[in-house]
Design a protein around this nucleic acid. Sequence first.
DNA 1: AACTCGGGGTA
DNA 2: TACCCAGAGTT
Length: 371
Amino acid sequence: MNEQKRYFSRELLSWYRANRRDLPWRRHSNPYYTWVSEIMLQQTRVETVKPYFERFIALFPTVEALAEAPEEEVLKAWEGLGYYSRARNLQAAAREVKAQYGGSIPDDKAKVSALKGIGPYTAGAIMSIAFNRPEPAVDGNVMRVLSRYFRLHDDIAKAGTRAHMEHLAQELIPEGCASEFNQALMELGALVCMPKSPACLPCPVMEHCAGRIAGEELMLPVKTKAKPPKPELRYAAIVEGAGEHAGKVLVRQRPDTGLLARMWELPHLLAPKTGGLLDLREEEAMEALRHGMQSEGVRLKPIGHWTDAEHTFSHIHWQMRVYRCVIEDTSSGIAGGKYAWIGPEEMERLAFPNLFLRLLHAYFAERRQNG
DNA sequence: AACTCGGGGTA
DNA sequence: TACCCAGAGTT
């Protein structure tokens, strides 16, 4: 190994020992904490994860507790965090760990990698952080740091690049210090070698950083940009209950797979296309909503426009127009367990994506004010 | 290799 | 606005 690499490992480790953040999942050495935190941290910032992690561990303190919990409670604990398959995969894996390994996460990379929701990065993170095994844990942070320090122009959006980075990252791990070193690499990316404005002056390895020396720290890493989310106009119904359902609204559970799987939502549908024009007149929109809901067995009458809402996912942008509706025919009932009438109390048990969480809170707040 | 899967922070 | 974030699973 050359001097640039030895310098990097030595100085980074030393810097980390003096600058490591006090994070909830670092307070105790517990492979379950490492596991839960790493799943939550996928594509999610540290500050966002902190309160979720605290609540999650309080609710499900051990692998067994998580394995034995109802899935709805796990989804509810994940509400608002996004990428909800992470929560379902985490619990499925916890059940596997309980059944196959007596509740202890195996100190074995192949077995850890085989668990649901654990890919190359998370397997490396668990093996290194929890068990101090010299495995690379290459995420976006690490690829950015390595791209800059070694001045690598490989496109980090390409799959092949990660393999190269993993080889390099593994080589850099100091003997017996995998846990600290891998966390140091990510800590540097988060605190110093940031995406937009890297703080090179206080950086512990700036002296031999090839990217900075070449004046390329702002152009690295090279990454092809993602295509913009596809816009979708949607019509949603806020259905006000009457009679025994007074004060409640109609909600619907999403299918078992796909976007927001098994989460609850306001009933809504994709607006029919109108010969190139995306927008419809108000009456036509309400008719489309009535007709679409009727085909699902829900007979309702839109009364008028209530509010608009927008929400952007990674690949879709929803523009949602929400209409006040009343139920037309309660005698037919709402078929299946897919629909439910809920008030503010029932809301506390069902898991909603943030878009609908905000709409429901706004609606119930409005009801409390207007009576 | 490309697409699917949330939500929010930040410049 | 645009980009990014302690990525994984599916096709």
